[in-house]
Design a protein around this nucleic acid. Structure first.
Lengths: 189, 189
DNA sequence: TGCACATATGTGCTTTTGCACATATAGTTC
DNA sequence: GAACTATATGTGCAAAAGCACATATGTGCA
């Protein structure tokens, strides 16, 4: 139940509307915690009830009015209290790795295509992260935290990209044939 | 909804009871997909209804009787069909990284303790994985898949462990002071 | 006999999540 | 002026996940 805290932490940066938050969750903090806009609006309503955030309606010219939420002192206290409890290790759920685990029951060409797509995604993010990280020399605690976050993201993407490449190589037909048919392997010697 | 498929894939190895599966999810396949025993028993009931697994009651001496589930041909077909659909990228949810993102609102000594614990966990798993991986020379497709899975697990744990160490260093008080108090920094020059 | 423990299988209830759909305002484009 | 796009905020509903609790068998032990 840390969507709550991900929102509070985001509002700690600067006041935002639900719409802003949704975009924010698609970009920066979304690397650490994913959320969709219905989730965010519902959570904001609860946080307001508890007094952890305050809301202010704002008229805009040329656009629909929006409700901007700010972190209250109670909200700040809540973040602090939460940060003192041990963090819950993230529970892994990866479709792709389950397939790899059951490799002999799986459509290997389809898995290979999947792997190719994954590799491209990891490489993209890898480049994006390292471009951002290159320009940061942390001047305060917040920036230090963000930089460290970027750093683990970068390492993660880099390893995954390299692993995808290796695994694509290992799953080439010519390598699989010899595994599947031990008779051929012996005959070939 | 791939708990279903994680179970099917596990039963593809060898028939198992719900109890066995629960243990299995605590160990090997649990690195790729976590599940608790109520989840598993409920899912098994559904899979049996759909004919994807078959159940057989077994009397044991000295222990309560158990129900052993096997993968059916329909189950095998289901795995194959599932494996042809694109895999859903795993949605990240990490408490700890959210805290790091909001570093200036957080209790830093508590975070440091957390970080220390994490690092130890990553190091343990790192050693465990590399010990297992060292002894495997894949002789068939299944073993190749398992080895690749182990390999990404190992890389993941290694990077996290190294990052934790670096981050612990970066969060030492003597480094933070200069960030928090720009006046001191200037005065010190 | 009573108690703790490991095996084995579940139910009940709440929270969280995700997806589809609904709605309203205002500018832009054809 | 009709259609389309971006902004902005929601509702409804169903699936999935998590946790506490319930239950039964058999072993070992004090």
């Amino acid at each position: 139940m840390a969507l709550k805290h991900a929102i509070l932490v985001s509002l700690g940066d600067t006041p935002m509307s639900g719409y802003d938050l949704a975009k924010h969750f698609d970009e920066s903090i979304g690397f650490f915690w994913r959320a969709t806009h219905p989730q965010i609006y519902r959570e904001l309503a609860k946080l307001k009830d508890k007094g952890l955030v305050s809301a202010e309606e704002m008229q805009q010219q040329g656009r629909p009015k929006r409700t901007v939420y700010s972190l209250t002192d109670a909200g700040r206290q809540e973040i602090l209290a939460w940060s003192r409890q041990p963090s819950t290790p993230d529970s892994v759920k990866d479709d792709f790795l389950v397939r790899l685990y059951g490799l002999d029951h799986v459509d290997i060409p389809a898995l290979r295509e999947d792997l190719q797509l994954r590799m491209e995604g990891h490489r993209d993010r890898c480049e994006r992260f390292s471009a951002i990280a290159a320009g940061i020399e942390p001047r305060n605690i917040t920036e230090l935290g963000r930089l460290r976050g970027l750093e683990i993201g970068l390492r993660y993407e880099r390893e995954w990209a390299a692993w995808c490449e290796e695994t694509l190589e290992a799953l080439k037909d010519e390598h699989l044939v010899s595994l599947e048919d031990p008779v051929m392997k012996i005959a070939g010697q």
